[in-house]
Amino acid sequence: MRSLVRARAVALSAAALLLPAVAFASGGEGGGNPWFALGMKFVNFGILVGILYFALRKTVPQALQDRRENIRRALEESRKALEAAQAKLREYKDRVAHLEDEIARLRADFEAEGKRQQERILAEADKAAESIRRQAEASAQSEVKRARDQLRAEAAQLAVSLAEEILRKAYGPEDQKKAVAFTVERVEGLH
């Protein structure tokens, strides 16, 4: 940017310096030699070119070099972007080409996972059923034992009641006196 401003300033300065020479070359005096006027125009033009050359000899090549570098950079970036886009395109084409295979693989994976889940659920259900069966058997055995114990207790109670009744009928007051005397004799025999 600075080089453009400098180039403009030099061009304006050169134009201001050459203005009197251009006026003289245009033949300000009515009837001069036309070949001389033409020669002065060439001289003016040569001076203008020389001034412009010396004024712009560094800035123009630098500006052109900068422009060339910018274009080269832009082309390089465009080439990289094109390569990246082509790579993405190839990737997507490959994915689309293998999409049916991918779908089949996913379907097979889902079916296999479903079978594994089904087997796991069935195994858990079998374990739960076995646990419930064992608990039911234990409960049934416990109930049977409790019922047997209760029946035994009732049978024992009935046997005692029946024995008391039989003893009351068969064991009279005379038998009681004999039993007390017999017990006393035994106790005394122990001493």
Rank of each mutant, 00 (worst) to 15 (best):
M1A: 08
R2Y: 01
S3Y: 00
A7P: 02
R8Y: 01
A9R: 01
V10D: 06
V10Y: 00
V10I: 13
A11S: 06
S13C: 12
S13M: 09
L17T: 10
P20L: 15
P20F: 15
A21T: 07
A21F: 12
V22Y: 14
A25R: 05
G27V: 01
G28F: 13
G31S: 05
N33T: 02
W35H: 10
A37I: 04
L38W: 09
L38C: 01
L38K: 06
L38H: 08
K41T: 13
F45T: 11
I47M: 08
G50P: 05
I51T: 02
I51K: 00
L56E: 03
R57P: 01
T59A: 05
P61E: 00
A63E: 11
D66K: 04
I71H: 01
I71D: 02
I71R: 05
R72H: 03
R73A: 04
E76T: 00
K80E: 14
A81S: 11
K93T: 10
R95P: 13
V96A: 11
V96K: 10
L99E: 11
L99V: 07
E100P: 02
E100Q: 09
D101C: 01
D101T: 03
L106T: 05
D109E: 15
F110E: 15
F110V: 15
E111S: 04
E111C: 07
E113C: 06
E113W: 06
E113M: 05
G114N: 14
Q118N: 11
I121D: 09
A123K: 12
A123Q: 15
K127I: 11
A128Q: 14
A129C: 07
E130T: 01
Q135M: 08
A136H: 09
A136K: 07
A138I: 10
S139V: 04
E143G: 05
K145S: 10
K145G: 06
K145Y: 10
L158A: 14
L162D: 11
L162E: 07
A163E: 12
A163K: 12
E164P: 00
E165T: 13
I166T: 11
L167M: 12
K169G: 02
A170I: 04
G172T: 09
Q176I: 03
Q176P: 00
A179K: 03
F182C: 03
F182V: 01
T183P: 00
E185K: 04
V187I: 15
E188M: 08
E188A: 05
E188K: 09
L190S: 01
